[in-house]
Amino acid sequence: MLSDEDFKAVFGMTRSAFANLPLWKQQNLKKEKGLF
Rank of each mutant, 00 (worst) to 15 (best):
M1P: 13
M1D: 14
M1E: 14
M1T: 12
M1V: 12
M1I: 13
M1S: 12
M1C: 15
M1A: 11
M1H: 13
M1Y: 14
L2N: 05
L2V: 07
L2Y: 08
L2D: 07
L2S: 05
L2E: 07
L2R: 05
L2P: 06
L2W: 11
S3E: 06
S3W: 03
S3T: 13
S3P: 04
S3D: 10
S3F: 04
S3Q: 05
S3H: 04
S3V: 04
S3L: 05
D4E: 11
D4K: 02
D4I: 04
D4L: 03
D4W: 05
D4T: 03
D4R: 03
D4N: 05
E5S: 08
E5Q: 08
E5G: 06
E5N: 09
E5H: 08
E5I: 09
E5Y: 08
E5W: 07
E5A: 11
E5R: 07
E5D: 11
D6H: 09
D6F: 08
D6L: 10
D6N: 08
D6K: 10
D6M: 11
D6Q: 13
D6G: 09
D6Y: 09
D6W: 15
D6T: 07
D6P: 02
D6E: 14
F7W: 07
F7S: 00
F7Y: 06
F7M: 02
F7P: 00
F7K: 00
K8M: 15
K8D: 07
K8F: 15
K8N: 10
K8A: 12
K8I: 14
K8G: 04
K8W: 14
K8V: 14
K8Q: 13
A9G: 07
A9V: 12
A9Y: 10
A9H: 11
A9R: 15
A9M: 12
A9D: 08
V10I: 14
V10F: 12
V10M: 13
V10C: 09
V10S: 04
V10L: 15
V10H: 10
V10Y: 09
V10D: 02
V10T: 09
V10R: 08
F11Y: 11
F11Q: 00
F11V: 03
F11G: 00
F11P: 00
F11M: 08
F11W: 06
F11N: 01
F11R: 00
F11H: 02
G12M: 03
G12Q: 05
G12P: 00
G12T: 02
G12W: 02
G12I: 01
G12A: 03
G12H: 05
G12Y: 03
M13I: 07
M13Q: 01
M13C: 05
M13H: 02
M13W: 04
M13Y: 08
M13V: 05
M13T: 02
M13K: 01
M13A: 01
T14D: 10
T14L: 04
T14M: 03
T14R: 02
T14Q: 03
T14Y: 04
T14V: 03
T14A: 06
R15F: 05
R15K: 13
R15W: 06
R15D: 01
R15Y: 07
R15M: 07
R15E: 03
R15L: 06
R15N: 02
R15I: 06
S16Y: 11
S16V: 12
S16D: 12
S16G: 09
S16A: 14
S16K: 13
S16F: 12
S16R: 12
S16Q: 14
A17G: 03
A17L: 05
A17E: 15
A17K: 06
A17M: 10
A17N: 05
A17I: 05
A17S: 07
F18D: 01
F18W: 05
F18M: 03
F18V: 01
F18T: 15
F18H: 00
A19Y: 15
A19W: 08
A19L: 14
A19F: 14
A19K: 11
A19N: 13
A19Q: 12
A19P: 00
N20T: 12
N20H: 11
N20S: 14
N20Y: 06
N20Q: 15
N20E: 14
N20V: 09
N20K: 15
N20G: 09
N20I: 09
N20L: 14
L21N: 01
L21T: 02
L21A: 02
L21M: 06
L21Q: 02
L21R: 00
L21F: 03
L21H: 00
L21Y: 03
P22Y: 03
P22G: 02
P22A: 04
P22M: 03
P22F: 02
P22N: 02
P22H: 02
P22T: 03
P22R: 02
P22D: 04
L23M: 11
L23T: 08
L23Q: 09
L23I: 11
L23H: 10
L23V: 11
L23F: 12
L23A: 09
W24C: 10
W24E: 09
W24V: 06
W24T: 05
W24I: 06
W24P: 04
W24A: 06
W24H: 06
K25L: 14
K25G: 04
K25H: 11
K25E: 15
K25D: 09
K25N: 06
K25T: 10
K25Q: 13
K25W: 08
Q26Y: 01
Q26N: 01
Q26M: 02
Q26W: 01
Q26T: 01
Q26L: 03
Q26H: 01
Q26F: 02
Q26C: 01
Q26A: 02
Q26V: 02
Q27S: 10
Q27I: 15
Q27W: 11
Q27V: 14
Q27F: 12
Q27Y: 14
Q27L: 14
Q27N: 14
Q27H: 13
Q27E: 14
Q27G: 05
N28R: 15
N28Y: 14
N28M: 15
N28Q: 15
N28L: 15
N28V: 14
N28S: 14
N28D: 13
L29Q: 02
L29S: 01
L29P: 01
L29A: 03
L29E: 03
L29K: 02
L29R: 03
K30L: 15
K30R: 13
K30S: 10
K30F: 15
K30E: 12
K30C: 15
K31M: 11
K31H: 11
K31T: 10
K31C: 13
K31V: 11
K31W: 13
K31P: 03
K31F: 12
K31S: 09
K31R: 13
K31I: 13
K31N: 10
K31Y: 12
E32G: 07
E32P: 03
E32A: 11
E32L: 11
E32R: 10
E32V: 07
E32F: 07
E32H: 07
E32I: 11
E32W: 08
E32Y: 08
E32K: 09
K33W: 05
K33M: 11
K33R: 09
K33A: 13
K33P: 04
K33S: 11
G34E: 09
G34A: 07
G34W: 08
G34D: 08
G34S: 08
G34Y: 08
G34M: 10
G34N: 09
G34H: 09
G34R: 08
G34T: 07
G34P: 05
G34F: 09
L35W: 15
L35C: 15
L35T: 08
L35I: 13
L35K: 07
L35S: 09
L35R: 08
L35Y: 15
F36Q: 10
F36Y: 11
F36W: 14
F36E: 12
F36V: 12
F36T: 13
F36D: 13
F36H: 11
F36A: 12
